[in-house]
Write a protein that binds this DNA or RNA. Structure first.
Length: 415
RNA sequence: GCCCCCAUCGUCUAGUGGCCUAGGACACCGGCCUUUCACGCCGGCGGCACGGGUUCGAAUCCCGUUGGGGGUACCA
């Protein structure tokens, strides 16, 4: 029997980063086994549905690089079928009416299953409530439709988050009552925020879209998420999507919860950003700027790539880092004497290349008996408006001779 | 309260009875490189929650304690 898994988000809001991790593990597992990965929207509770969420979820998944097989299905579409099955259970004495609702009657004894990540888990049925499987208004509930869908869709492996552990015994009992064989279950550890508490809105970035907005690369995102609760060995950290697919196993998923480490994500994104080719980096950058409605000329933007690629960890740092190429700066605070000397040293430079600029400036420093560090600081400040910038000589070249001399001249004029 | 799960450096993790004086990565600290920042390189700090067992031998197995998490809805 080939593998078939499902990603089952509820459309109550934007896709949560923890949810993506869960779906990623489903996807990696399916892709590795050459199986199917379905996308099923669990919208049984219509009252909580957010209309845009369905599109948003798909877009977020696609952005990270997770795809699915077949059409997107909706749990609600199986509602009628589920209701009929519930009535069947009533007629068989396996469920009963209660205040207009249908409750599942838990069988005697105990239930257990061999969880692929947590080992054997057992529940005493007497501790399980007779849960409502069809509401008094006729709508079946999640805990009924979900296993029914798994049965109808012939799902072989259910890979979901830890908070479903307590639903599993009931779902197994329901499946058995229906005469179906339960799938193989795997319960993934939860992801916590930096404070050790469950990841939530107040931790800032929890929606996939926020990371996209901040300028993270999908591959970096996927790599980072894969390492939250799973590892390949004791050394490997950076893994491209195809490597993750090759290497992923449920057996190597850990059982303890993980804390989302934003700093490590930043580091990893920097790694991926630096490995990009110049054109690819430019494409990514141009797209990101477009999404953020920053209309700087593309040619110049692409020309800045070699100057910034080693410097920033995520694209959201880009605008402020290179703003001086596109907008005027204030010459405040730059030592006028040094700027005047720079004007003098740079005026005869032809052609205006990084190498020639560096040579002229270094000769100036030597003639002045200054240290490069102290001499270049005011020049950098005058030209870029900041103490921190891309390489000075490259920046001067890109800025152009006229503009560079104008800025240095303006700084020199302040006394 | 009851049910279930979890417990290795600050964080992500390796470790499945001897290979562990517990390895790697992020962060942090120090140094090198250096025009700032960053990258890179070198070095350092830092952990098996606690208590009992089992065993010749325990981070690894068992029990208890403590701590954390999840569930306990006519939510998903």
């Amino acid at each position: 029997m080939s593998v078939r898994v499902r990603m089952a988000p509820s459309p109550t809001g934007f896709l949560h980063i923890g949810g993506v991790r869960t779906f990623l593990f489903n996807w990696l597992f399916a892709r590795q086994h050459g199986g199917e990965c379905r996308l099923r929207i669990e919208n049984t509770d219509t009252s909580r549905e957010v209309v845009e969420a369905v599109d948003q979820i798909q877009e977020s998944l696609r952005w990270v690089g997770i795809d699915w097989d077949g059409p997107v299905t909706f749990q609600l579409d199986t509602a009628e079928r589920a209701r009929v099955l519930a009535e069947q259970l009533v007629s068989e004495g396996k469920a009963y009416m209660d205040d207009g609702a249908i409750r599942f009657k838990q069988p005697p004894g105990s239930v257990s299953w061999e969880d692929k990540v947590r080992g054997r888990i057992e529940f005493q049925n007497e501790n399980l409530p007779d849960l409502v499987i069809v509401r008094s208004d006729g709508r079946p509930t999640y805990n009924f439709v979900s296993p029914v869908d798994d049965m109808l869709d012939e799902i072989t492996h259910v890979i979901r988050a830890e908070d479903h552990v307590s639903n599993t015994p009931s779902q197994i009992n329901i499946l058995r009552a229906l005469g179906a064989e339960p799938p193989i279950y795997s319960h993934l550890p939860n992801i916590n925020g930096p404070d050790g508490k469950k990841l939530s809105k107040r931790h800032g970035a929890v929606s996939v879209d926020v990371f996209r907005d901040d300028g993270y690369l999908p591959a970096a995102m996927m790599n980072f998420l894969a390492l939250l609760g799973w590892s390949f060995d004791d050394k490997t950290t950076i893994m491209q999507p195809h490597e993750l697919i090759e290497r992923f196993t449920l057996e190597r998923v850990v059982q303890s919860p993980a804390t989302f480490d934003y700093e490590k994500l930043d580091w990893m994104n920097g790694m991926y950003l630096r490995e990009l080719g110049e054109d690819a980096y430019g494409d990514f950058l141009v797209g990101w700027l477009h999404d953020h409605e920053i209309t700087w000329p593309e040619e110049t933007v692409r020309a800045t790539v070699p100057l910034v690629q080693e410097k920033i960890e995520k694209l959201s740092a880009y605008p402020n880092f290179v703003r001086f190429f596109f907008e005027d700066v204030s010459p405040e605070g730059a030592d006028p004497t040094m700027c005047a000397a720079a004007v003098e040293a740079l005026t005869p430079v032809t052609p205006w290349t990084t190498e020639a600029i560096e040579a002229a400036l270094r000769a100036m420093v030597e003639a002045l008996g200054e240290k490069p560090r102290t001499a270049f600081a005011p020049i950098r400040l005058a030209v870029t408006g900041s103490k921190i910038s891309p390489g000075l000589f490259e920046s001067l070249e890109l800025l152009g001779k006229d503009e560079s001399l104008a800025r240095l001249g303006a700084a020199a004029a302040i006394s």
